[in-house]
Each structure stands twice: as C-alpha cells, then as structure tokens.
Write a protein that binds this DNA or RNA. Structure first.
Length: 524
DNA sequence: CGTGTTTGACCAGCGC
DNA sequence: GCGCTGGTCAAACACG
C-alpha cells in the first residue's frame, strides 16, 4: 500500500506537470488558431467549394496542404482499394490537440455527430420517450422534409462490428447480454445469435454474434444502439468505441465533412493507434472517409463500420516500420481484454480525454501519421516483451497475466528507462513529427533530455503508460478480450457525447506541429 | 424460483 | 401476390 500510494503520488505529480504543459500548449495552440482563424476551417470549405462534398476531412483544427494527393485519395477510396501504405508515400503530419476548436461549429451550424446519431437512430428517441426499442416506423415522423431528403440514407441504424479471433461463444465486452434468438443466415452455416443488453431493463442495445465457416476462429460481433444506462467500467471501452464509430458513420453519411471530426477523431485515434482496421460499408453512397487500412463496401444493408482485430496490418504490410523489430505477427487479439479495463496504471487524464490528441487524417495521403502512431504502440509492446524475454520473466504474451504487479512495475520501469527503448520510441515519434518541430514532440514527463536538433522527446519514468497496453496482472482474462482500448472511463461516458468521445484517444498528447517545419516525413 | 437459453412461429422488408 | 430472408417473440426448457 505504501508503494502504491507513493507511486500514486508520483503519478499525480506527473499528471499535474502534464496538465500544466498541456494547458500551456493549448493556450499556445489557441493563439495560433486565433492568428490564423480561417486556416483550420479551410479544409472543409475548400473541399466543398471544389465540388468534393463527399470528401471527409478529419481535420481537427489543422490545415491541409497538398491538393494533388486529394485526387489520389479519392481514387483509392472510391475504388474500394485497401488504403495501404506504400513506400513512396509521404506522411503529412497533422496533429491537433483535440477537437475543442471544432466543437462550436457543430453547435452553431450543424448538428453535432451525436444528435445526428440520435436523430437517425430510433433507439435514442426511444430512450427519451421510454418506449420499447425498435421504433423503425417512428423515424420518419420526426424529420422535416429537408432532413428526409438529406438523411434519407441514414435512416437505418448504424452498426459497429468488431471482428476478433475468439474461442469462446461470445466476446466478453463487459456488458451483460441475454440471448433472445438464433438464426442461420443465408450463405453461412454458422448460426447467428442475437443478444440484447440486460444491464438495464429497457436498454436498446443489441448485438449479433456470428462466426464464419471460412474461419471458425473469427468471431464477428455487431453492436447496434446506444446504452441508456451507466456502464461498468469494463464495458465503457467497447461501448464508447461503438458509439463513436456509430457517430462517425452517421455523421459521415449525413453531414459530410464537418460533422465528423470529434467522433472520427476519437475512433481513429483509439483504433488506429491500436492497430485496428476499419471497413466502412454503407448502402448509401460510399463516403470516402480516409482511414488507415480502410476500404469501402456497399454490400451491407445497414451502414456498418467494422473494427477488424483479427489482423495486424501494420506489422504485416509495413514491416519496414518496425525497424529493428521483427515483423512478427502482432495480433492484438492476443491481449484482448474487454472484461477488465481498469485503470492499469493509466493516468486519469489519459482516459478522460484531457490529453487526447486530435489526429488529422489527411485525405491526401495513403500513408500517414496514424499508422505510425500505431507503430509506436507496437514498439512499446515489442520492447516490453523483448525485455521480459530478456529477463526470463516471461516467455510469451500468454503468461503476462500471471505476472506479479511488482514484476510488471519493475519491468516497466526498466523498459521505460532503457535507452534503446527511448531511442526507438524517439525515432518513431520523430519520424512522425519530424525533426524540425522543436518542442512539439514532447510526450510526457521529463526524464530524457531534449537533444539539440529539437527532438525534445521526453519519456516519463514509472508512469509511462506501457502498462496500459497489457492485461492486468490479476485474474484470468477471457481469451476474447482486448486492450485496444485501455482507457477507463466514467460510466456516463458511454453515451455518445461529442466531448466525451475524446477519451478514446490514447495517451500521447501532441501539441500543434509547426506548419513550417518538416511535416512531411517518411517512415523508414 | 429466478434467470438465461433454445427454438419454432411470427412479422416486416424486399425482390421478382 | 408470393417467396425469401433477417429479425424478433415467446413458450418451453435447463440450470443453479
């Protein structure tokens, strides 16, 4: 207890320091935005003016640059190609602090993503009215004619599918579910199971669980609806993800560009950072949202976004990014953990979104910063396991759960203080941010001195969030759980509120990059 | 006895 | 109108 309290105090100190830095940087960023008031919104307006209303800009207050790649992106996405990272891709760094400067837009001009979701998904109306769930036929009554025209294609509820490798019948996502039906769908001998949330009596959330004959180990869970009740902490990650993804989907199909940023940013930052693949399928018109490793499909009857946790595309398709690390199959499912997403030495600010970074997925790039952030994550894990193996404390990831806490703490401390780890992470982040962005690559805390070239990369010692990447050291963990969202969130955050979605952002807090600096970088 | 699962019936949407 | 399909209902059943 004493050690824990001591560590807690250290964490608090780190947190305070980080908060101060964050506020300072936020103020700095705000000043910059005020100095260039039109720059942040130029992306969206430009796209609209140039006759590309479908082009979804994930701008979070940062500006875009190159218009040539715009066409390239459009071709890519419209062609339903998997947006892959090619060697000749340049990476335009575009990191914002968060979406705070974008939020007023929704309030002033357009409905926010969440209201959009509520307006287009009947269950949310039911939540307010207290009726029973599937009010499919009540949707049309609440729309004016313009909305009917503009949102006609999004009447159907948005769904979020999570695909994982799982041996158990269902994926443990922290919620309580009751099976209410089973059906064998056409073309798939494996039956589809229907579940509804039983945490609250009238919770509208339902999910479908299905396997595929092609690969019985892959479990696809499709979530639908928004929880109308507080969720256990262990369930907030998944609920938040689905909510954010649904918001992204709805807003993407209804309000085009400007309605996307917060939810898209959250889902992007949460998922892309953890190596998820996105697949958008919308029976409406395909919305060319630029996502890492994304592809578009119009096969589904309902707009669906799929979080694919079965592959590690960055590790497999971009081995060069791994640097000296072997491009081994780094499947996130090995550490899946939806059942126990407690704090895990995760600083509070990381989970409540204060430090969430806003990632701007430039629509012009095939390859961009998000994937590289994922690289950073994998770097951490690789180093972590490397360290553990080096010390004979652990032989593989499957036994990590049984590690005593002090071992983990010691390992974490050793890793984070390991110069090779720091240098590798510094290289990764430098490659993201660019060497010319002085004072912009600070991560957290202060232990490593900034170098002369302006890398200024600092690592925090014991509170470095590497532990959050791993399952807790206690209890047995369901095989089908995931740490892809390691943040612990207040239960109310499960409801899709624009601001609350940012907690999905993982831990790195990037100040605004210097526009004049080297923002186009390659990851090699 | 309460809770959850199973499973056939039922309903609505859609295409022909 | 008809058949197919996905989704839901609810009675029967299982289990602790």
């Amino acid at each position: 207890m004493g050690e824990v309290m001591e560590e807690n105090q250290k964490l608090r100190m780190h947190l305070d320091r980080v908060m101060k830095e964050y506020r300072a940087l936020q103020m700095q960023f705000h000043d910059m935005v005020q100095q260039e008031p039109n720059k942040s919104s130029s992306t969206i307006s430009t796209h609209r003016e140039t006759g590309e209303p479908e082009l979804v800009s994930l701008s979070l207050g940062m500006s875009s640059s190159d218009g040539k790649k715009d066409d390239h992106f459009s071709r890519k996405t419209h062609g339903k190609e998997k947006v892959d990272n090619d060697d000749d891709d340049k990476e335009v760094l575009a990191l914002g602090l968060d979406c705070k400067f974008e939020l007023p837009k929704y309030q002033e001009n357009e409905p926010s993503p969440t209201p959009s979701l509520e307006a287009s998904s009947g269950e949310v109306k039911e939540e307010e009215g207290g009726k029973t769930w599937p009010p499919k036929n009540s949707l049309k009554n609440v729309r004016n004619e313009e909305d009917e025209v503009s949102q006609q294609n999004s009447v159907k509820r948005a769904r979020v599918s999570v695909r994982v490798r799982c041996d158990t019948p269902t994926m443990n996502d922290g919620c309580q579910w009751r099976k209410y039906g089973q059906k064998t769908a056409k073309g798939n001998p494996c039956p589809r199971a229907y579940y509804r949330c039983t945490v609250a009596p009238n919770c509208p959330v339902r999910k479908q669980v299905q396997r595929y004959a092609e690969d019985m180990s892959i479990l696809t869970t499709t979530y639908e609806g928004t929880h109308n009740h507080p969720l256990p902490i262990s369930a907030t990650a998944m609920a938040s993800t689905t909510s954010a993804a649904a918001s992204m989907l709805i807003s993407g199909s209804t309000t085009s560009t400007s309605g996307l940023s917060p939810s898209v940013a959250s889902i992007l930052s949460s998922a892309s950072f953890n190596g998820l693949n996105f697949y958008l399928s919308d029976n409406t018109k395909p919305t060319p949202i630029y996502l890492p490793n994304s592809s578009l499909s119009s096969s589904s009857s309902c707009p669906t976004i799929t979080l694919d946790l079965t592959t590690s595309s960055n590790a497999s398709s971009h081995p060069s990014k791994l640097g000296s690390f072997p491009p081994r199959s780094y499947s996130t499912i090995q550490n899946l953990n939806f059942s126990s997403l407690e704090s895990n030495a995760l600083p509070l600010s990381w989970s409540n979104g204060v430090l969430g970074y806003g990632t701007q997925a430039q629509p012009y790039n095939k390859n961009q910063n998000i994937g590289s952030l994922n690289f950073g994550r994998q770097l951490q894990e690789a180093h972590y396991q490397s360290y553990l193996q080096k010390n004979n404390s652990i032989s593989n990831s499957s036994t990590q759960q049984s590690l005593p806490a002090d071992t983990l703490a010691a390992a974490t401390k050793a890793i984070t203080s390991d110069p090779s780890f720091q240098s590798a992470l510094a290289a990764a982040l430098t490659s993201i941010i660019g060497p010319g962005t002085s004072s912009t690559a600070r991560v957290l805390g202060s232990q490593t001195a900034a170098d002369e070239s302006g890398h200024n990369l600092k690592l925090i010692d014991q509170s470095f969030p590497i532990l959050s990447s791993f399952p807790p050291s206690t209890s047995t963990v369901n095989k089908c759980t995931s740490t892809f969202l390691s943040s612990s969130n207040p239960p109310s955050s499960a409801n899709s509120q624009p601001g609350s979605l940012m907690f999905l952002s993982p831990s790195l807090s990037f100040p605004t990059p210097n526009n004049n600096s080297t923002s186009n970088v390659r990851l090699h």
